[in-house]
Design a protein around this nucleic acid. Structure first.
Lengths: 227, 227
DNA sequence: GGGTTTACTTAACAATTTAATAACCTAATG
DNA sequence: CATTAGGTTATTAAATTGTTAAGTAAACCC
């Protein structure tokens, strides 16, 4: 499952800047579009709803502050990241830009690499937690789905397949209550028919093996991981 | 609807820096805690689970990079913002910090105002993510249906299923009066037949467990949530 | 392949938690 | 001050989960 590339709009009146940033962002896999002034930035933003907009502050027609303020007043761009770029490195502009709703403020001269890693950091933060198979690490408990390994305080615990899958499901969304139905369909699949007691028994075995109380029963509802 | 103050942990080995940042953040309404080295930072982070951690890179025991890496490997701190502070303004450190999972990177000399507005921008951005679902947050009372969790002043209260559902129903439309019929059909369903006394008993249990008077009786009409 | 081990499921029962009701008490209302 | 709705408590019933043991199927290993 591959996601569509993230769209980034660059608004700057200096062609050189656009070109160099554009080059680096494209190379990094973003879908890049450009604007040469504030008005064009707003037009293109409406047209393409980019995921992120880089706004130079000093632009013709409408400056970056104005564009930022406009976008922020529009619910359509709630989730759009705004990064302000500027040669003015004064504190007041910096604060003003953030207060108008900017997500980041980068002073020129801009290092493309730094800009890229800042944008990545912002995207990483707002990206909904992807459901990829990843190692779960909660306090001293490590659950590695690639190796089917569970360790607590560096001691390895051998969980059976179903036990492991159940634990992993719950721990992946720690705190959230899983209904028995959800557990059944996630761990056992929708066509397999097993009784409710089966879940209990597996929960019991996990609790017994790990020796810690990490799965909480929510009576009448389901189970949740809580540690 | 007032939320609990956001917790920020400042980790720096220079007392002057701690003091000045601490002063500004406290004044801005944050709940500030401090650490003098990397190990202390990790300890306090585990203890208090702050919403944001400011990490100086050059610290004794464990440097900011190490602390950042450690925190990011631990699911407990998934949602914790990490801001790296440093005197080193080189590009490599900057990128390294962000790649290790830092959310922002601020070079010294730090302007407290700029730092504050950057932190605010970060919080503003993640706020909708964390509080978007159906979590009810009234003053110091939090009711999270996904977790079947009720907390008052950060203390967890265990409500039974019906109690929770009743409380959630009322709190979801705080202030509005619910007729007994409405409550019955929403919480118990239309086909179940239970007496009026049953509602009373559940209301009583909620009031007793939470220890606060958050459900008001409207005699002859019904109940409303009022807190 | 025969024997052994391991994991999974189920059934039966125990333990616990939760829900509902009755009966009585209290407070509000007119 | 009588009436009535709601509060309280205790008791009982019901629902839900925990536990153990045993049966079955699959995997493993000479």
């Amino acid at each position: 499952m591959e996601a569509a590339p993230l769209k980034i709009l660059i608004a700057d009146d200096e062609p050189d800047i656009i070109e160099i940033i554009s080059f680096h962002l494209t190379k990094a896999g973003f879908n890049v579009m450009t604007a040469r002034d504030g008005s064009e930035a707003i037009e293109k933003a409406k047209l393409f709803t980019p995921d992120c907009i880089l706004l130079d502050i000093m632009m013709p027609k409408r400056n970056g502050f104005e564009v930022c303020e406009y976008l922020r007043s529009n619910k359509q761009f709630d989730k759009t990241l705004i990064v302000l770029l500027t040669a003015m490195n004064d504190e007041a502009s910096h604060i003003k830009g953030l207060e108008l709703g900017g997500d980041d403020f980068v002073s020129k001269p801009i290092s493309p690499k730094v800009l890229l890693s800042r944008i990545s950091a912002l995207f990483r933060r707002i990206q909904p937690t992807s459901g990829e198979s990843k190692i779960i690490n909660i306090k001293d408990l490590v659950i590695d789905p690639a190796q089917y390994r569970t360790t607590l305080k560096d001691i390895n615990f051998v969980l059976a397949k179903k036990e492991f899958e159940l634990l992993y499901l719950l721990a992946a969304q720690s705190g959230r209550v899983f209904l028995r139905n959800e557990i059944l369909s996630q761990v056992w699949g929708n066509d397999v028919i097993v009784g409710d007691r089966t879940i209990d028994v597996h929960v019991r075995k996990i609790r017994a093996k790990l020796g810690i109380d990490c799965i909480t029963t929510v009576k009448g509802v389901g189970y949740k991981f809580d540690y």
